[in-house]
Simulated scan of single mutants.
Amino acid sequence: MQANFVIATPAISCILNKNATEACKARVHYDDQNFYVAAVEGGEYVFKIMNSEDSKNPAITEVQTYAMSFLCQNGLPAQTVLPTVSGQQISLEEMDCGFGLQKYLVRLLTYLPGVTISKVPLIPNLLYEAGKMAATMDTVLQKMEHPNISILQREGFIWSLSNVPLLEAYIGPLDGDPLQELVKSIIHHYKTSVEPKRCHFRTCINHGDFNDLNVLVQADENGDYKISGILDFGDMNYGYYIHELAITIMYMMTEHPDPVQVGGPILAGWESVIPLNEMEKDCLYLLVMSRFCQSLVLARYSVTLHPENAEYLMITSRKGVGILKKLWKLGKKEVEKMWFKAAAEFSHTK
């Protein structure tokens, strides 16, 4: 099926094969604009407008789009893109999204059923499946070939867990907040305890944002939730398997009534696909802590730039501060003991 995009300001109208749409509703996103589209003749889609900064780099969007199709071809629940009438997967359009006329990359994607995993109880079996899915995804992405794949190196990418020390340039909004000293301490421990061991980490391509709002689930005939979708490949980068695991644990913790209990089942699911080596195990706690720091610091910084989006930008931050402090108080040894013991026990039940 082909698609044609017609942009109107202030409303956005998406026309599929020149037929009017039944519905076009905005969907919230951290950087981009997403619109749910229901076509009159049937079919559901997501019309995605990339943010202005990412729109300047169509090559990386092309690789991300290809990765989604590659995962789908390999049996994973990722969106695929519908080409325009001229056969393009991505189109550069000039429009006003509230900041004057600018050029934005747009795509029409398939719509995946389900609700975000944040909306359902995170029972151990579902957490296990999340860990297993994240690991499976990275093993599949590692097999992907593309002429521009090197663009995923992304040196200096602030959301990469390889670049945690770069947060030091963004902690100004935390001045006067005791959280700033905790963040500085974690960055210091990252430099002294994680960076020297990085040479022992196994490299891969990371999704980079396997979080509670980017994972969809759907109930099966027994009422058990299964993962039905993986969204948002905008943070893809060359990294390490252990990074994806740390990111997954961190975000799922923000949705659990007892966050520390999340690590065990996710770890068990992950290691059913990719067992960790000793250096990776030793760094997992600090990498989870570092991801909390990235989320908290960059959210605060983003609010200074876009105060009108404060409510959305601070979703994870509001929950994360308390969890970060609790993990820090418990300490590396105690948290690791709980995670790895629970993972071993859970694995025996599978």
Rank of each mutant, 00 (worst) to 15 (best):
G269V: 05
Y66C: 13
A8K: 13
A342S: 11
L305H: 10
A344C: 07
V115F: 05
E334G: 01
T61G: 06
G223I: 08
V40N: 10
A130H: 03
D32I: 01
P307L: 07
H243I: 04
N237D: 09
L286K: 02
N206G: 06
V28W: 12
M314S: 03
K329A: 13
H256F: 01
K143M: 13
N57V: 12
P173E: 07
R154N: 05
P124H: 06
L76F: 01
S13H: 14
I205P: 02
V63M: 06
N17T: 15
D54V: 07
V40Y: 09
S347T: 15
D54W: 06
A67R: 10
D232Q: 01
Y241F: 15
L296E: 03
E53G: 07
R27I: 15
Q218K: 11
I60K: 07
G176Q: 14
L174E: 10
C283H: 01
C293A: 14
L71R: 05
L152G: 02
Y104R: 04
D258I: 03
L213E: 12
T136P: 05
C204S: 10
I123M: 12
Y170F: 13
D232M: 00
G223L: 08
T254A: 00
G156D: 09
C14R: 14
G98V: 10
C14E: 14
K18Q: 15
E93L: 15
T139I: 10
V194W: 01
E181F: 14
I187K: 00
K319G: 02
G208D: 11
G269F: 02
T65H: 07
D177L: 08
C14D: 14
R107V: 05
L82Q: 07
I205Y: 02
Y66H: 15
S69V: 13
E311Y: 10
P265K: 07
K191I: 08
Q261W: 05
V6C: 06
P275M: 03
Q73D: 14
F47Y: 07
I187T: 02
I323P: 00
R198E: 13
L174K: 06
L284C: 02
D31C: 08
E22I: 11
A3L: 12
